[in-house]
Simulated scan of single mutants.
Amino acid sequence: MSRPALSTLTAALVSVIQLMTIALLYILTDWYIDHAELSALDALPPDAKRAWVSINNGEIPAPSDLAALAPLYPTLEEATEASPVEGVLGFGFLLIVFTSGIGVVLAYRLVAPLTRLTAAAEKIRQGDFQVTVEPGATKEVETLAITINRMASELLALETRLKFNTRAVAHELRTPLTVLQGNLQGMTDGVIPASEDQLRALLAQTRGMSRLVDQLNTLSLAGTIDFVTATTATDLALHASETVTLFQISAGGDVNFRTYLAPAPAMIDPDRFRQAILALLENARRYAGDFGPIDVHTGVDDTGRSFISVQDKGPGLPDYAQHSSFDMFWRSERLSGRGTSGSGLGLTIVKAIAEGHNARLEVGNNPDGGAYAKVTFEVA
Rank of each mutant, 00 (worst) to 15 (best):
L221V: 13
S83A: 15
Q185D: 07
D301L: 10
S2I: 15
I148P: 06
G223I: 10
V133I: 15
D271C: 09
L6E: 07
R305W: 02
R360G: 09
Q126L: 15
Q198N: 15
Q322F: 02
L345F: 00
T80E: 13
Y260L: 07
D47T: 10
A79P: 06
L261A: 08
S153I: 04
T118I: 06
L25P: 07
S64F: 01
E140Q: 15
L95G: 11
M187C: 08
T232V: 15
R305N: 13
N283R: 13
V191N: 13
L69M: 09
T229L: 15
I22D: 08
H323K: 09
L221S: 14
L180I: 11
T178K: 04
V16A: 15
R150K: 04
S336N: 10
L158V: 05
F247Q: 11
L69S: 09
I60Y: 01
L76G: 06
P74H: 15
E172Q: 14
E122V: 04
I22V: 14
T80Y: 10
E78S: 12
I22G: 07
G316W: 07
D226N: 15
R274D: 13
A137P: 00
G344F: 05
A48Q: 04
G346M: 03
F98H: 03
F329I: 02
S325M: 01
M151C: 05
L221A: 12
D254L: 10
A43F: 00
E378A: 14
A321K: 01
A107H: 08
E77C: 14
L173Q: 13
L317G: 01
V296P: 00
S210V: 00
R274N: 14
P46H: 08
I148G: 08
S54W: 01
L28S: 11
T8P: 00
M1N: 14
P265R: 02
R360L: 09
L44G: 05
Q185V: 12
L162H: 13
Y287G: 14
T218P: 10
D269I: 07
E154L: 08
A262Y: 06
I225H: 13
K49L: 10
Q198W: 05
H357V: 14
D368Q: 12
L28G: 10
G314M: 03
I17W: 01
G182F: 03
M328T: 02
T8W: 05
M328L: 03
F164A: 09
P270V: 15
M267P: 00
G101K: 06
L13F: 11
R285L: 00
L117T: 08
Y73G: 08
L6C: 09
L144N: 07
P135H: 09
V244E: 01
T178W: 05
P270W: 06
I124K: 01
G101L: 11
N183K: 06
S15T: 08
A266Y: 07
A70Y: 08
L278W: 12
D34G: 09
L361W: 09
T75S: 14
Y287N: 15
T340S: 11
L177T: 12
